[in-house]
Simulated assay, not measured.
Amino acid sequence: MGIQNREDKILNSLLESRADNEHVIDVPRDHTYTIITNILTFLIGIFIVLLIWQGFAVLYNDYIGNSLIPFTTPLEAFERLFELLSGGNMFGVTIYDHVFASLKRWTMGYVISAVIGILTGLILGYSTRLYPVGIIPVHILQMILGLAWIPIAMLMFGLGDESAIFIIAMTAMAPIIINVSSGIRKAPPVIMRVANMVGSSKFSIFSNILIPYASLDIINGLRIGLANAWRVLIAAEMVVGVAVGLGYSISQATYVIDYSSAFVCIMVICAIGLFVEKVVFVSIEKYIRRKIGLEEGV
């Protein structure tokens, strides 16, 4: 027994020492390694896109294209981008004005859709009687293409920002409602019954049970809605009569055959979308996963 107790003490001492060393050294090292790996992976992905773009431009300009206007290369697009970032003019205003105008419409339309979508999703997900009927109009709404709202928007609001904001809100709303209601319905019925039996208030049930269970679905719904809103914004700006914005700039660049400016706008659109997805939403998702115990982290 004495030998066994001594071995147990030695083993416990080694395990405690290993745990302390891992806490001090391994976790920060692993965290830093993960960050570096993610950055390198992102840069490699960007490099592949630029490589494909350059390869297609060379192939088109030298062997395929019959047009007098060459296909814009990445170098030409970046040169035009730096020119615009330095204060160059693009269709009467700077690129900063175009970006700000698009982001303003995008934010206003998305906030409207997020507020309505989350509230509606919570109600549908919580009510077992209302859900089967209420979710049908939402699915119908989801089937309507964003650009299909253009005649309705122009009829209601005419030309201008209000039409673009309406189109964004209607396009982003359905996926938010569907994901939120689906997440709320994932809560196990037995937990709901226990909460009701102990006299928990509806607010307590929502905040302590339903919201944690639905948190990842809510994030996914907001993510899909945001992407839908961004895509339809660019298309809407081309046709609803706005005079400034990234979509408007692409449309105007096509008319005046300024393809380098069009590619710059596309690059800016992609950069903003990647930032929101890879920085904002990924960070929020990781935070939520740690809070609900699905992921370890420091």
Rank of each mutant, 00 (worst) to 15 (best):
I211G: 08
L68P: 00
P188R: 02
G45K: 01
L11W: 11
W106Q: 01
S181T: 05
I224A: 04
G245H: 04
I140T: 01
K9D: 06
S261I: 04
I165K: 06
L145H: 10
L246K: 05
S249M: 14
L81C: 02
V194P: 03
V240C: 10
M267W: 01
L130R: 02
L11N: 10
M90F: 11
M90K: 12
Q252V: 07
S86V: 09
C265M: 15
I135V: 06
Y287W: 10
S182F: 03
T171M: 09
L59N: 03
I52W: 08
A57N: 04
E83I: 05
Y287N: 09
H139D: 12
Y60M: 04
S260G: 12
I144T: 00
V49W: 05
Y33T: 15
H23Y: 09
S249L: 13
V190K: 10
G87K: 06
A235V: 02
L159S: 11
M156N: 11
F47S: 09
M90G: 05
V232M: 06
I135R: 04
C270W: 12
P189M: 06
V194Y: 14
P70D: 02
G183Q: 02
G247T: 09
I144A: 01
D62V: 04
A271G: 14
A262M: 07
F82T: 10
A164T: 13
K286T: 09
Y255S: 15
S127A: 11
I292K: 07
L147N: 01
S102K: 14
Y213K: 04
T94H: 08
I144V: 07
M156W: 15
T94K: 09
E76K: 05
P137R: 01
